[in-house]
Computed example of a mutant assay.
Amino acid sequence: MSILSWILFGLIAGAVAKLILPGKDPGGIIVTIGIGIVGGLLGGWLGSSFFGGGGISGFNLASFGWAVLGSLILLLLYRLVFHKSRG
């Protein structure tokens, strides 16, 4: 699967990750979209390199799942690093 496909997956996966983990993120929608794109690339890399051995290809449910997983991981990390404490 090409990098361009993972970027497209990332856009959609970022939106899904935001629906799964709602809340106000520091940075707004642009940062969330960026996290989605990078998360899609991360998910594609994880799935291809470690778990699929290059078996993930095309627009299918497994590929989309990896993109969403990568976006969720990055969104959680982003919130942990840039979370402003309320008090």
Score class of each variant (00 low, 15 high):
1 M>F: 06
1 M>N: 08
1 M>H: 12
1 M>C: 07
1 M>A: 14
2 S>Q: 03
3 I>E: 00
3 I>R: 03
3 I>K: 02
4 L>P: 00
5 S>W: 13
6 W>Q: 08
6 W>E: 03
6 W>M: 05
7 I>A: 03
10 G>F: 10
10 G>D: 10
11 L>Y: 03
11 L>Q: 02
11 L>S: 02
11 L>H: 03
12 I>H: 00
13 A>V: 03
15 A>F: 14
17 A>E: 08
17 A>H: 09
19 L>Q: 11
19 L>G: 05
20 I>T: 06
20 I>Q: 02
20 I>F: 10
21 L>G: 00
21 L>C: 01
22 P>M: 09
22 P>C: 07
23 G>L: 12
24 K>N: 10
24 K>I: 08
24 K>C: 01
24 K>V: 10
24 K>Q: 10
26 P>C: 00
26 P>L: 04
28 G>F: 07
28 G>W: 09
31 V>L: 04
31 V>W: 02
31 V>H: 01
31 V>C: 00
32 T>A: 03
32 T>G: 01
32 T>V: 01
32 T>R: 08
33 I>K: 03
33 I>E: 04
33 I>C: 05
33 I>V: 15
34 G>M: 00
34 G>A: 02
34 G>F: 01
35 I>V: 11
36 G>D: 15
36 G>N: 13
36 G>E: 15
37 I>H: 00
38 V>D: 04
40 G>C: 01
40 G>F: 01
40 G>M: 01
40 G>L: 00
41 L>M: 12
41 L>F: 09
41 L>Q: 06
42 L>G: 01
42 L>F: 05
44 G>E: 02
44 G>A: 05
44 G>Q: 06
45 W>G: 10
45 W>R: 07
46 L>A: 05
46 L>G: 02
47 G>N: 11
47 G>R: 13
48 S>E: 12
48 S>D: 14
48 S>R: 11
48 S>C: 04
49 S>R: 14
49 S>L: 09
49 S>T: 15
49 S>E: 12
50 F>D: 02
50 F>R: 11
50 F>V: 11
51 F>P: 13
51 F>Y: 15
52 G>A: 13
52 G>Y: 09
52 G>Q: 12
53 G>A: 08
56 I>R: 06
56 I>V: 12
57 S>A: 15
58 G>Y: 11
58 G>E: 09
58 G>M: 11
58 G>H: 12
59 F>Y: 12
61 L>R: 05
61 L>M: 11
61 L>F: 14
64 F>G: 05
64 F>P: 01
65 G>R: 04
66 W>R: 11
66 W>L: 09
66 W>Y: 15
67 A>H: 06
67 A>W: 10
67 A>K: 07
67 A>I: 08
67 A>S: 12
68 V>D: 02
68 V>T: 04
70 G>E: 13
71 S>K: 07
71 S>P: 09
71 S>Y: 11
72 L>Q: 02
72 L>T: 04
73 I>L: 15
73 I>H: 08
75 L>C: 06
75 L>F: 10
76 L>Y: 06
76 L>M: 09
76 L>P: 00
76 L>F: 07
77 L>S: 06
77 L>G: 13
78 Y>W: 15
80 L>K: 13
80 L>F: 11
82 F>M: 08
82 F>H: 04
83 H>L: 14
83 H>E: 14
84 K>W: 05
85 S>N: 15
86 R>V: 06
86 R>E: 05
87 G>I: 05
87 G>T: 06
